[in-house]
């Protein structure tokens, strides 16, 4: 990827990531998160990981972030009036973040310069599938099990049990159960 294109997406990613953290309204944060994820997936595609870049957009932007949106709606979160928070926590938090950033930067700036030219078929679906279904097959099956457990667990935790609430609104509750399952996409 050319440096100019990289710079564009890098700036987009950083600015929108700051947006996620700084926006008062959760929906605006969410939109900033979408922009961050799209910028990152563009960067991945630029690195030659074409399939995984598009998969990132499909899974995160198309499914996970939509569920965030649903939860925001379900909780009816409006603009935050401003968070009280402890000043001390913020101060030490900022300090810790600065220290972490400095460390990561010091560590990464010395990384190898200039990627070698990508071999033919690098990042293609064939190559990826070959690795996943041969070398990482057990891990792959384990993640499918993890997803199943997560779906069942999410429905069990978020469900309104009959004892809590004698009458539950049919449409809302069922649509919500469906959403959990949408996670599996």
């Amino acid at each position: 990827m050319e440096v100019g294109v990289f710079a564009f997406f890098a700036v987009l990613a950083v600015v929108s990531a700051l947006g996620v953290v700084l926006q008062r309204s959760p929906v605006h944060s969410l939109l900033a998160l979408v922009a961050t994820l799209l910028a990152i997936s563009a960067l991945l595609i630029g690195l030659g990981a074409v399939a995984i870049g598009f998969l990132l957009a499909i899974v995160y932007v198309g499914a996970i972030v939509v569920v965030f949106l649903f939860v925001i709606w379900l909780l009816n979160l409006q603009r935050d009036p401003g968070e009280p928070g402890h000043l001390a926590a913020k101060f030490f938090g900022a300090f810790a973040v600065a220290a972490l950033t400095a460390e990561l930067f010091a560590f990464f700036v010395r990384a190898p310069v200039g990627p070698p030219p990508a071999p033919a078929g690098y990042g293609s679906v064939d190559r990826l599938a070959d690795l996943i279904f041969r070398d990482y097959l057990v891990a792959f099956e384990a993640t499918s099990l993890l997803l199943l457990v997560a779906v069942v667990g999410a429905v069990a935790v978020a469900r309104r049990w009959p004892a809590d609430q004698p009458r539950r609104s049919g449409a809302g509750a069922s649509a919500h159960g469906e959403l959990r399952r949408a996670e599996r996409a």
């Binding site: 990827m1 050319e2 440096v3 990289f6 890098a10 990613a13 950083v14 990531a17 700051l18 996620v20 953290v21 961050t36 990152i40 960067l43 630029g46 690195l47 973040v97 972490l100 950033t101 990561l104 930067f105 560590f107 990464f108 700036v109 010395r110 990384a111 190898p112 310069v113 200039g114 990627p115």
Partner: peptide, 18 residues
């Protein structure tokens, strides 16, 4: 080509923001 270290620094910056 963009050096790999640029990507790593960007990753670090995004991580720190998170």
């Amino acid at each position: 080509m963009t050096p790999v270290s640029y990507y790593l620094v960007l990753g670090a910056a995004l991580f720190a923001i998170g």
